[in-house]
């Protein structure tokens, strides 16, 4: 089932066009990987799915992005959209507060104050992000005391704590060591049962390992979009093949 459907999306930064008449769908409970060289608009596309692009004042968008058939650029409340479409950033960005308060930040935003309820949410979120065992004894400690890999899982837990439907991940492992990367990948595989996951990655092996579908972008358009198996074994487009075999990019 289509969770997100993009229809004829054009995105401009001032006079520069970053995405050209893009149409694509993202399936529920699947991991979709967006690959392509730097500056091809993958991150831009990701940010347009939870409207983080709104922060860029020169950014203009035409076309539609439908979340469960509702246009997110229409009358939908932006904060509510971002609650439903969570995001994990490239660089781990835990708030400089305790581990507990980091996770509770989102729920508190939605008015959840009861300690028992929050405790429960915090434990569940940290468990889903496979970091509960490492943090259960130090929930009151600063989140900045965690290692980079732990911080990124904390950020994932923080995103999960608001019970999103979609998870956007912008190169979530590019700043991490191989072992932390593997942990995140395993997590994503487990999480896709409950979430729709869209991940931008520069790591071809990662895309091949974890994604169900893969989309290849070049300059400002999508060149090819299909199942990961097909893209990585039998790419239809010559440019896709050149890119995944490492001939450029």
């Amino acid at each position: 089932m289509n969770k997100i459907s993009i229809q004829n999306l054009n995105l401009f930064y001032g006079s520069f066009q970053a995405l050209k008449s893009l149409s694509m769908d993202f399936q529920e409970n699947e991991i979709t990987a967006l690959i392509g060289p730097s500056g091809c608009g993958k991150s831009t596309l990701l940010k347009s799915l939870n409207r983080m692009n709104d922060l860029v004042s020169s950014c203009k968008i035409t076309g539609q992005v439908l979340l469960d058939n509702e246009d997110i650029y229409g009358t939908m409340n932006v904060n509510l959209l971002r609650k439903r479409v969570g995001m994990v950033f490239q660089k781990p960005n835990p708030f400089p507060m305790s581990i507990y308060d980091n996770i509770a930040f989102g729920p508190r935003t939605y008015g959840i104050r009861a300690k028992m309820r929050l405790d429960d949410i915090v434990e569940k979120a940290l468990t889903s992000a496979a970091i509960w065992d490492e943090t259960r004894d130090r929930l009151k400690k600063s989140a900045l005391s965690l290692s980079g890999g732990q911080q990124q899982r904390l950020c994932l837990a923080r995103a999960l704590a608001v019970a999103p439907e979609v998870l956007l991940m912008d190169e979530p492992t590019s700043a991490l060591d191989p072992i932390s990367t593997l942990k995140i990948e395993e997590l994503l595989n487990a999480l896709k049962r409950d979430y729709t996951i869209i991940i931008v990655t520069h790591n071809m092996q990662q895309a091949a390992r974890i994604s169900d579908k893969t989309a290849f972008f070049l300059i400002d358009e999508m060149i090819e979009y299909g199942s990961a198996d097909q893209i990585f074994s039998l790419p239809k487009d010559k440019r896709t093949e050149d890119y995944i075999t490492g001939r450029f990019g």
């Binding site: 609650k83 439903r84 995001m87 960005n93 708030f95 400089p96 989102g106 935003t109 923080r158 608001v162």
Partner: peptide, 27 residues
């Protein structure tokens, strides 16, 4: 304060004001 705190709070669905006062200000 790094912009990433503000963006991180917004991405959780917090309003601009809540993000500024409860994520950026404590930092």
């Amino acid at each position: 304060v790094p912009k990433s705190y503000y963006e991180g709070a917004l991405a959780l669905g917090a309003s601009a004001e809540r993000s500024a006062f409860f994520a950026v200000l404590p930092a």
